[in-house]
Computed example of a mutant assay.
Amino acid sequence: MDKGASAKLLLLLWATCYGHATADHLSGYTSVIEVANGGPWGDWAWPEMCPDGFFASGFSLKVEPPQGIPGDDTALNGIRLHCSRGNAELNTQVVESQSGRWGAWSEPQWCPGGGFLVAFSLRVEAPMAPGDNTAANNLRFRCSDGTELEGPGLAWGDFGEWSKACPKGVCGLQTKVERPRGLRDDTALNDVRFFCCRS
């Protein structure tokens, strides 16, 4: 089963557990966009979708700053989509899938001129053994007008290839997060996928 099909299956199972209203809400997406360089740790959390008729026009990140030696770095911990309809400043909803516990949220970055997010690239540090693994470090989005927005994440690792583009914009997300491991090495957010709006 390919990743897109498994994402749809997860959404279907989640919607079935949480009732018909949610299932109807989740039917508003057409496809899933992903990248191939996500970190290997953690589990996929619940999906979160923009309200019907809203598109993701901005984002913010939860980032833990460098912890120094002998600290345990986790870097990128969470992603929020800022979904808007019409005037973004007056009519905005924020959606967030699971996030790690460390770090602080950045101020939102917005696509210019009422544009919306259509594609993304993830900065990931390759696994190190032994070493202090951080997995996902930062995120870039491409807007519908071609503008690229880079989050305020950390510089470890490399940005991978861009995802495919959502023809009508992004309207939901699902994160892969490693739970806190006590005295062992933590990585927090490892990977993310986004859902493309139907209309």
Rank of each mutant, 00 (worst) to 15 (best):
P130K: 13
A119W: 05
A104I: 04
E64M: 12
P51I: 02
A56R: 09
I69P: 03
H82G: 06
L139R: 00
L117Y: 09
P127N: 07
R80M: 12
C111N: 06
N77G: 07
M128T: 15
S121E: 06
L61M: 12
N133L: 00
F116D: 00
L139G: 01
L122I: 07
I33A: 15
G42W: 11
A119N: 06
P130W: 15
A129E: 14
D52W: 01
W105V: 03
E107D: 14
P130M: 08
A129L: 14
A56K: 05
S106C: 15
P40A: 08
N137W: 02
P47W: 10
S99H: 15
G71A: 14
P51V: 02
K62H: 01
D73K: 07
L90T: 09
W110Q: 12
S106H: 06
P66G: 04
I33Q: 00
G86T: 04
I79H: 02
V95Q: 14
L122H: 01
R123V: 02
G113V: 05
G38W: 13
C83S: 11
G100T: 13
F54C: 03
A126N: 15
W46D: 15
P51R: 04
A36C: 01
V95A: 06
T92A: 06
A45R: 13
F54M: 13
L90I: 03
D72I: 12
F59M: 07
G113W: 07
N137C: 08
G53C: 07
G42N: 14
H82R: 11
C50M: 04
S99G: 11
G115R: 04
G113N: 15
G115Q: 08
E96G: 02
I79E: 03
G103M: 11
L117G: 03
C111Y: 04
E89H: 04
G53H: 04
A104F: 05
G131A: 04
G86V: 05
A119L: 05
D72G: 00
E89I: 00
P66A: 11
S106Y: 01
E125Y: 05
V124T: 11
T74H: 05
G131T: 10
L122E: 00
R80E: 08
S99W: 02
D52P: 03
G68W: 09
D52G: 02
A104G: 13
G114D: 15
E125T: 07
C50N: 04
L61I: 05
F120M: 09
W41S: 11
A135M: 09
W41A: 09
G38D: 01
G78C: 09
A45D: 15
M49Q: 05
S84H: 15
Q93N: 08
N138V: 06
V95E: 09
P65I: 03
A36D: 15
A88E: 05
M49S: 01
Q98K: 08
V32N: 02
N87Y: 08
W46H: 15
L81C: 08
F116W: 15
E34Y: 09
N137G: 01
W102T: 01
G78Y: 02
S31W: 08
C83K: 10
S121Y: 01
N37V: 13
E34H: 11
P127A: 12
L76S: 03
T30I: 10
G42D: 13
R85E: 13
S99Q: 11
H82A: 10
E34M: 14
E107Y: 03
F120A: 03
S57T: 14
F120P: 03
G115T: 01
L117R: 14
D73R: 00
D73M: 04
S106D: 13
